[in-house]
Simulated assay, not measured.
Amino acid sequence: MAIHPEIAKILATLPAPDGSPLNPEAMRAHEESMVAPLEERLPLHSVEDLTLQTSAGQVPVRIYTPVEAETYGLLVYFHGGAFFLGSLDTHDHVARSLARETGHKVISVGYRRAPEAAFPAGLEDCYGVVRWAAGQGQRLGWDGKNLAIAGDSSGGTFVAAVAAKAHDDGFAGITHQVLFYPSLDLDFDVDRYASLRENAEGYGLETAGLKPFNSFYLESGADPADPLVSPIKREDLSGLPPALVITAEYDPLRDEGELYGYRLKEAGVDATVSRYAGSNHGFVQNFSWIPEFHRAFRETGDFLKRD
């Protein structure tokens, strides 16, 4: 189907890329300026900001409790932003919707970003928070069942990498992984996946922009050949947690996400690949107010209910 008309309206207003160098500080400031005021955000039982002491050091988090209850499943969330953008605030609405639609207590991670923090700082922060959550069940009101991880775009990269690190460390506590239009191959050879050419221009995220947007991360020491940087390069995917991979029809990264899901299945992992027709990269963050795309949160909730 064609790109959703509401998305098309927004895309028509975007200026064409002019090739100017990216300015992280200015781009972050612009993102933060778009954050909705607190009174306009989805209300939940409680939202609490904390700084945790983890194996990676101190990490800021925001904990979302959807309703008052005795126990909860836990969902640790890693925001997107090409490893240098995004924050607890810019993705606050995503975490709130995840909490509301899944019924889980959501722990959103304010991990260190490139270029200020070199690889693997952000990844270690995410992993450290997952291990912290696993050891804080009583404090968090954990029901002892689900300890899920979820992330969008580069946050999806961290989901796959954290799941792999946990497996290799012998930590079996992660029960589910949810990847929204993940970036799983940071080798940006345009002939590697058909979607890099099919969706190269005109849909928000453009194939030509992938290399410069990810350059801050790669120049900080992240090697695209490393499976913790490009998780699709991991040879053995067996033993990883059940996965839900949600992709967007008009996304240059669509095919690598779907291939990863299919490879998980081939390795014996319970994996579901769900493509959202008419959507583009970033739709969970940017267009979840459209009912067809808000469904991604409900699909996540349904996935977390599966045994």
Score class of each variant (00 low, 15 high):
residue 104 H to T: 08
residue 105 K to I: 06
residue 107 I to H: 14
residue 107 I to L: 14
residue 108 S to Q: 13
residue 109 V to F: 02
residue 109 V to Q: 02
residue 110 G to S: 00
residue 110 G to N: 03
residue 112 R to V: 03
residue 117 A to E: 05
residue 118 A to H: 12
residue 119 F to N: 10
residue 120 P to H: 00
residue 120 P to I: 01
residue 120 P to Q: 01
residue 122 G to K: 12
residue 123 L to R: 03
residue 124 E to Q: 11
residue 124 E to D: 13
residue 125 D to P: 12
residue 125 D to F: 11
residue 126 C to I: 15
residue 126 C to A: 14
residue 126 C to K: 14
residue 126 C to P: 15
residue 129 V to S: 08
residue 130 V to F: 08
residue 130 V to S: 09
residue 130 V to Q: 09
residue 131 R to V: 14
residue 131 R to Q: 15
residue 132 W to Y: 08
residue 132 W to F: 06
residue 133 A to M: 03
residue 134 A to L: 06
residue 135 G to E: 13
residue 135 G to P: 11
residue 136 Q to I: 05
residue 136 Q to W: 08
residue 141 G to F: 06
residue 141 G to H: 04
residue 143 D to E: 13
residue 143 D to W: 13
residue 146 N to K: 10
residue 146 N to T: 11
residue 148 A to F: 03
residue 148 A to E: 04
residue 149 I to H: 11
residue 149 I to W: 10
residue 150 A to R: 07
residue 151 G to W: 00
residue 152 D to A: 06
residue 152 D to L: 04
residue 156 G to L: 12
residue 157 T to W: 05
residue 158 F to P: 15
residue 158 F to W: 15
residue 159 V to Q: 00
residue 159 V to Y: 02
residue 159 V to M: 00
residue 160 A to N: 01
residue 160 A to C: 04
residue 161 A to K: 03
residue 162 V to S: 07
residue 163 A to C: 05
residue 165 K to F: 09
residue 168 D to T: 07
residue 169 D to R: 15
residue 169 D to M: 15
residue 169 D to E: 15
residue 170 G to R: 09
residue 171 F to A: 14
residue 174 I to P: 12
residue 174 I to K: 10
residue 174 I to E: 09
residue 175 T to D: 08
residue 176 H to P: 07
residue 176 H to W: 07
residue 176 H to Y: 07
residue 179 L to Q: 07
residue 180 F to T: 06
residue 181 Y to A: 00
residue 181 Y to I: 01
residue 181 Y to G: 01
residue 182 P to H: 06
